[in-house]
């Protein structure tokens, strides 16, 4: 039992890292632009697809494949910002309109990928081999995901705290009006944040695809998990997204010991509703005056 528990802990941690990275992008975009990017999951999916194509057709080594995931994620995010957010955001009901435009974009991306590549799962190799810790066996790819994830999280924290651009992002999240007043190029920071979130999603896609296989539906399932994470963690809270993302991965892995996967997912989704009922601002959320 203990072995199973440890085993699931490692698997859940790796999965949770992907939730944390996706939710972090979602929550950063919400914090800075005050919008929900509904197409964020599809950026993850297309990033993973880019990785698959680079590995399969170009035979690129895995580190290059990761780079492809990042670049695809950034490019796609930039296009989404162009098609769905620019000009729309400043309308009176801008944020709800953006919800609709990104929803439309997510439909387009998902259906286009299904149409062109079909629903059959695709797979690629990541970091080969596995490591043993006592009875617990973990694939090196999972360890790699955890390591890269921690590295990226530390890097983001450093950038937000210590760099000019990071301070500007935080300032904009704190008050868009004051950010304009002090001369921050608000539009640029918005795009930077949005594209950075896209890079995160694309990278996560490329990191996870050797583990989860590629299918067009992975974007849809991860976005719902990311919503659960972001709502429970508190919309706009980066710490909440990371902690709850990893916690969700672990929880999912443990619950899967006891019941079929579909019920486990349904149960976890229900957590979102329970959170809204008892703590609407999320565990890490602060009431804003």
């Amino acid at each position: 039992m203990l072995d199973l528990f440890l085993q699931q802990s490692m698997n859940g941690f790796a999965q949770g890292m992907s939730y944390a990275l996706i939710a972090l992008g979602l929550t950063m975009v919400f914090g800075v632009l005050h919008i929900i990017n509904f197409a964020h999951g599809e950026v993850y999916m297309v990033g993973a697809l880019g990785a698959v194509l680079a590995a399969t057709y170009l035979g690129a080594p895995y580190f290059v494949v990761l780079g492809v995931g990042i670049v695809v994620g950034m490019a796609l995010a930039w296009l989404i910002a162009l098609a769905g957010i620019g000009k729309v955001l400043d309308r009176k009901d801008g944020s709800s309109t953006v919800l609709l435009t990104t929803f439309a974009i997510s439909i387009i991306l998902y259906e286009a990928v299904v149409t062109f590549f079909g629903p059959t799962p695709l797979r690629i190799e990541g970091i080969p081999g596995r490591s043993e810790f006592g009875q617990t066996v973990v694939t090196n790819q999972r360890l790699f995901v955890i390591a890269v994830g921690l590295f990226v999280l530390a890097g983001i924290e450093f950038v937000l705290r210590r760099s000019d651009i990071g301070r500007q992002i935080r300032a904009l999240a704190s008050s868009a009006f004051a950010a304009q007043v002090v001369g921050i190029n608000v539009e640029r920071i918005r795009v930077v944040t949005f594209v950075a979130a896209g890079a995160l999603a694309g990278l996560t896609g490329a990191l996870m695809v050797p583990i989860t296989l590629f299918s067009p539906t992975i974007g849809h399932s991860i976005i719902i998990n990311a919503f659960v994470v972001v709502v429970i963690g508190g919309m706009g809270s980066a710490a909440g997204a990371v902690v709850c993302g990893i916690a969700l991965g672990l929880l999912e892995a443990y619950v899967a010991i006891f019941m079929p996967q579909q019920f486990a997912s349904a149960l976890i989704y229900a957590l979102l509703l329970v959170t809204l009922l008892i703590r609407p601002k999320g565990l890490f959320g602060r009431a804003r005056a």
């Binding site: 704190s174 004051a178 001369g183």
Partner: peptide, 29 residues
């Protein structure tokens, strides 16, 4: 932001400091 570069600065009504950043960070921004 271009007007700020051109030499205009505003201390807005209601102050609007960046409430969750430190004094020094407010200045650096």
């Amino acid at each position: 932001h271009q007007r700020v570069s051109a030499g205009i600065a505003l201390s807005p009504e209601g102050r609007h400091v960046f409430a969750d950043m430190s004094v020094k960070e407010n200045l650096l921004v």
